[in-house]
Nucleic acid binder design. Structure first.
Lengths: 225, 225
DNA sequence: CCAAAAGTGTTCACAGTACACCCATGT
DNA sequence: ACATGGGTGTACTGTGAACACTTTTGG
């Protein structure tokens, strides 16, 4: 075998990842954004992201950017590449191709602060975001579409919640992601028929009647692909 | 606005596209492969692909590679990015990230010859391909999965056929892509209920009873996304 | 008249939808 | 006692699956 190296005709481009990280807050789907501290688009809000490092896999880069640009308390429960944005004009600094990722953060991971060279980080309503830098509005649109597809298909809804949760809580996840309300009886019937939940016997008290707590049944798989 | 250029921390990687181009032949789903003429993997079969050029959009690069590495007679009827492969070790020449595309070529586009620096090009059974270079077996697997998803969802099956076709022909497309047989009566019922086909009045003769020819009904959309 | 392929209907099971009231607890 | 949210069942409708015979043509 001869010595192999990148052939001269290979265009070198900047390779970046962007991450649309979602969580539920007060029944609303929210997305994690950072405020840019540098040109271009300084002071605009953007999806966390940055350049992939040599030897780093794409999903590793996505995790690293999430951890360094924002301070999130917990690990993402789901991380998935969903589209690659490569229009030559999408970034004024040159040819930068971004592999966009979708992440789900569990409830409780709400405290974020800016890190790295950002001015800050915060959660925003995913269905009504502020003006975003670059083509990030298009990336976010597509991320929400993919999230809605995955929701039922891959019991992704559970990743938004702590280990033990009530059915009304699970329903608010569905409603927040789909951005519409669902019938309570049909929802419960459908979810329980899947057999992926097990009642834990405990109950959660609050205002009104206490709710049954459920957990992921053992033997329930954690979403393929 | 200041002068903008790629920041120094931006890793430069080789950016490539690969194309899994499918067509139907004799009731079988086939994929277009090229035989590599250069190291690494010289003489192995691979998906057509190559480096994106400066200023070129990803889908343009995919079309160009398809046209220069193989001589296909017609335009692809469908071209869609479906996954980006970026494992650092996937190519021994260095860090090369490949945005993989799925293409559908219409029936009749069967004549291919090698072009560029390939030794040749040919069609192979998509469900039983030869040994492939790099990680192209994984890319092909994922391409077939996406094709199966899109088939019904986005009436992609029509793109495999000429303008006028019979229902039995359409059924062989479904069967070839899904790699299983379907019930004739249920298939016809389901397809006709969608209302996207219009009988053309003509019939196609051959052995046995002549079949009704259909066309895409006007007003039927050509698959979103 | 025979071979070959096209064409045709009914029944059943399951899933999704619409819809309204009672229950358990805290205050 | 009342306010608050949790929990429950039934009827209807549409869709997908199983299943066998008749029709039309060419040779």
């Amino acid at each position: 075998m001869g010595t192999l190296s990148l052939p001269p005709q290979a265009t070198r481009v900047g390779l970046a990842v962007d991450v649309a990280a979602f969580a539920m807050h007060a029944g609303e789907l929210r997305v994690l954004l950072v405020q840019r501290g540098e040109l271009p688009h300084a002071r605009d809000w953007a999806l966390p992201g940055g350049f992939v490092q040599p030897g780093e896999a794409l999903h590793e880069a996505a995790l690293r950017e999430l951890r360094t640009e924002t301070t999130v308390e917990l690990e993402p429960r789901h991380l998935e590449q969903f589209y690659t944005f490569g229009e030559p004009s999408r970034d004024p600094r040159g040819r930068i191709v971004s592999v966009a990722h979708l992440a789900v953060l569990p409830h409780g991971t709400v405290r974020v602060t800016g890190g790295g060279h950002t001015l800050g980080a915060d959660w925003f309503p995913a269905h009504h975001p502020p003006r975003l830098a670059f083509d990030h509005a298009a990336i976010l649109d597509r991320a929400i579409g993919r999230l809605q597809l995955r929701l039922e298909y891959a019991n992704l809804a559970l990743e938004f919640l702590p280990d033990a949760f009530t059915l009304p809580e699970l329903q608010t996840v569905y409603e927040g992601v789909l951005d519409r309300s669902l019938d309570k009886r049909n929802f419960r019937k459908r979810i329980l028929a899947q057999g992926i939940l097990a009642a834990s016997g405990e109950r959660r008290s609050g205002v009104g009647r206490p709710a049954q707590l459920y957990r992921r049944a053992k033997g329930a798989r954690t979403a393929a692909l």
